[in-house]
């Protein structure tokens, strides 16, 4: 059993007076998330990321398909008992202070009264809001609200955590703290489902990524899978290369160019790298090093989104 299982989920929004206007927000989404991993859902605005998370938390009903959290259908109250959620642009009752807010949401999570205050104080300390816990939250900055939101999502010690833009509005130091916290939670065996536009952050902490565009999953995989797709290698040589040898290399691979004793080759298949190395070795070249030229997640993401019709 996976902590998050999604099978054929679709969502069509119907609107208008005669309910004839239809918008396909999600189309036949299926995937699972392994326990104890950080899974990130990426996609441009309007791709359907938030709709998918809302379906998993039963805030939105799917038009088709099924989803389970910890093996329980997501429409069940039990599915939400062990999951935490930090929504994007969350709004808290602003007449409460930080501590009261956590106590209130703790009650909604069904935490026993005896442990509410201790748990709330512990989490406020964890997210660095201990000093401001008695201040009304209407006076909180965006970053402070984000930290409070994270504490709120952790109240019931969830084993599945859904975070929608968790570092939005947080300063660089705070972002690092949140990243470290997420990695720490992962090491405790918690499963984290992340929605974020900050691809550099996603790249640093995610184990697997799904890219969603126009309501459809266009790619899933690990970060190395997604960023290693280009098959471009840089080979450091210890001498100049002749034009004739360059021609022979070009006939072997897709692209080849030389610059400052570094040969850059683009391959059709990984096996072509062996042929290039053999050619260089038989022509007496000594090879200083071989590096795979990786795409950043952002470059990979842009390529994938750009290929979509």
């Amino acid at each position: 059993m996976h902590p998050i299982e999604i099978e054929g989920v679709s969502k069509t929004y119907v609107s208008g007076f005669w309910r004839r206007a239809r918008l396909e927000a999600l189309v036949d989404i299926s995937f699972q998330v392994e326990a104890g991993t950080i899974f990130s859902l990426l996609g441009p605005n309007g791709a359907g990321k938030t709709t998918l998370v809302k379906i998993l938390l039963s805030v939105v009903r799917p038009s088709a398909g099924a989803a389970r959290i910890n093996g329980v259908p997501c429409s069940s109250v039990d599915a939400r008992a062990k999951s935490g959620y930090l929504p994007e642009n969350h709004r808290y009752p602003n007449f409460l202070n930080g501590l009261e807010t956590l106590i209130f949401f703790g009650r909604l999570n069904g935490l026993p009264a005896s442990m509410l205050r201790d748990r709330a104080n512990q989490l406020l300390g964890l997210v660095g809001l201990d000093e401001w816990k008695k201040m009304k939250i209407r006076k909180y900055s965006k970053g402070m609200l984000q930290r409070l939101g994270l504490a709120q999502a952790l109240l019931n010690e969830p084993n599945v955590l859904f975070l929608d833009e968790p570092t939005d509005g947080v300063d660089p130091v705070g972002r690092k703290e949140i990243r470290d916290l997420l990695v720490n939670l992962k090491s405790q065996g918690k499963t984290i489902f992340l929605n974020s536009h900050l691809l550099s952050e996603v790249e640093r902490i995610s184990d697997r990524v799904a890219i969603l565009n126009k309501g459809r999953i266009i790619r899933t995989g690990s970060i190395p899978d997604l960023t290693a797709g280009a098959l471009i290698y840089e080979i450091d040589l210890e001498g100049g290369i002749s034009a004739e040898l360059m021609d022979r290399i070009r006939r072997t691979v897709e692209t080849a160019m030389i610059s400052n004793k570094t040969l850059t080759v683009g391959l059709h298949a990984r096996s072509e790298l062996d042929s290039v190395v053999d050619l260089l070795r038989t022509n007496g070249f000594s090879i200083g090093g071989i590096r795979e030229q990786k795409l950043s997640l952002e470059e990979s993401f842009m390529q994938l989104i750009g290929k979509q019709p």
Partner: peptide, 15 residues
């Protein structure tokens, strides 16, 4: 039921 508030309330284990 405002955006940002509804998600918080409805995602809790309460019907």
């Amino acid at each position: 039921l405002e955006k940002g508030s509804a998600e918080l309330f409805l995602s809790k284990p309460i019907t």
